[in-house]
């Protein structure tokens, strides 16, 4: 893993995976997390490529996908900006979350885990995350005095056959090919 900074953004790149997907995904995450706010200008393809020391074709490929996602817009002669529509970002974040959840559940069911198993695992994971709001700072060592957290997002039991739900875009494996 190579860490490279571009302005306030930090990228973690792995040369053994397609680079455009990594750049695209990490930009999407920065937008979803609000590190890049609505209407904010993002570095030009040239600046990004130069700072990352990555082929400009690769960066421009990632940028095209962000534009297709509706997350960015290019204004002629001014550069590329994050969409000013907070609703678009919110919707994108929601879609991502739903897709990841669906994928997660499909995998768990594929390994024969039951709904109570999954809930239990999530609760254990949450206690490890030590109540950090988004779980991303879950770096603390596991604690013995696991607090009794009630999962606020406990899904209804009826959601068990989630893998049979019609999913809009069935995907192979866990990889993200666009």
């Amino acid at each position: 893993m190579e860490e490279r900074r571009v302005g306030a953004l930090t990228f973690h790149l792995d040369w053994s995976q397609p680079l455009y997907e990594q750049i695209m995904q990490q930009m999407r995450q920065a937008i979803a997390k609000g590190e890049l706010g609505p209407g904010e200008k993002i570095p030009s393809v040239r600046e990004m490529a130069q700072s990352l020391r990555v082929n400009p074709n690769t960066v421009s490929h990632a940028y095209q996908q962000l534009e297709r996602d509706g997350l960015t817009e290019t204004r002629r002669g001014q550069g590329t900006f994050i969409t000013t529509s907070a609703a678009t970002i919110q919707r994108f974040r929601q879609d991502m979350a739903q897709r990841l959840t669906r994928e997660f559940l499909q995998q768990m069911f594929a390994y024969g885990l039951s709904w109570p198993d999954i809930v239990q695992l999530l609760e254990a994971a949450q206690s490890m995350a030590d109540g950090s709001p988004d779980g991303t700072q879950a770096r603390d060592a596991p604690r013995n005095d696991a607090p009794a957290v009630s999962p606020s997002a406990a899904p209804p039991a009826a959601a068990v056959p989630a893998c049979e739900e019609p999913s809009p875009k069935p995907r192979r494996g866990g990889h993200e090919h666009e």
């Binding site: 190579e2 790149l13 040369w15 680079l19 393809v45 040239r46 490529a49 130069q50 990352l52 020391r53 990555v54 082929n55 400009p56 074709n57 690769t58």
Partner: peptide
Amino acid sequence: IVSVLSEEERPTVLLSTHELYEAEPLLD
């Protein structure tokens, strides 16, 4: 090298190197 690639009429670049770790993200 990246800076000239960002020019409008970008050239084709052929490059040999043993410093692959650093150079490989440039390659397409």
